[in-house]
């Protein structure tokens, strides 16, 4: 899932400082699961904004909505009527939702209320860890299901750097060394030989280095 974190309230307030009426749009997808952009987060943020604006003597009206998914046209098209009366949309979906809103409703300005962080999952209650960098050429087959692109601070493909100590990454003592994890995992499944091969330089064209990526699913084309 996509994991996002709310922007600081001051930054949000500043971005809507000229607005008297906004739509605060959450999303029922990933950001609901990570607590940053679901219906409850919409409710909470709306009251925080209203209180802050009241203190500034400039009250604001807020239409609260949480479409099932902000990244699909069929769920956001229904917002068109309400959008006519607002100065802006404050979106607390991920960056994809903000852009879908912008493209589908070009006459309205959509502002981001979240910082979109990564693809990951909750490793424990209310704690999300990054797991995938979307590099476009998955290596998990030979790394024992642990990704060095997303989890090694240097994206190394040929084993740990000299800063791996006691299972921890040199960059942050809270972070496990991805290559220690890979080593342990491959040892457990009897595949340590995977580490003997010199891995060739990666072709980064499948990642974010060759312009915006597209996927076409021919079979489903209309």
């Amino acid at each position: 899932m996509i994991v996002a974190d709310r922007k600081p309230l001051d930054e949000i307030l500043n971005s809507i400082k000229d607005c008297d009426r906004i739509m605060l749009a959450g999303c029922g997808g990933c950001v609901t699961i990570c607590f940053s952009g679901g219906a409850k987060a919409v409710q909470l943020l709306a009251s925080q904004i209203k209180i802050a604006r009241k203190k500034q003597d400039r009250p604001i009206e807020i239409i609260e909505v949480t479409p099932e998914r902000q990244c699909e046209y069929e769920f956001i098209d229904a917002l068109a009527e309400d959008l006519k009366s607002v100065d802006a949309v404050l979106s607390i979906a991920c960056g994809v939702g903000v852009q879908a809103m912008t493209e589908r409703h070009p006459d309205t300005v959509t502002l981001p209320g979240l910082n979109t962080k990564f693809m990951g999952y909750p490793v424990e209650h209310a704690l999300w860890d990054e797991r995938c960098a979307g590099c476009g050429d998955c290596v998990l087959e030979w790394t024992g299901g642990i990704c060095p692109i997303a989890r090694c601070a240097k994206k190394l493909l040929n084993g740990p750097c000299g800063g791996s100590a006691d299972g921890v990454c040199e960059v942050d003592k809270e972070l496990p060394c991805a290559w220690q994890l890979i080593y342990d995992r491959l040892k457990k499944i009897g595949k340590l030989d995977n580490l003997k091969k010199i891995r060739e330089p990666k072709d980064w064209r499948t990642s974010t280095n060759a312009g915006q990526r597209k996927i076409k699913f021919e079979e489903a084309m209309l």
Binding site: A153, K154, K155, G159, C161, I198, R199, P201, W204
Partner: peptide, 9 residues
């Protein structure tokens, strides 16, 4: 950071 290639490569 870059790390286009690693030290081995």
């Amino acid at each position: 950071n870059v790390y286009d290639i690693d030290s081995m490569q």
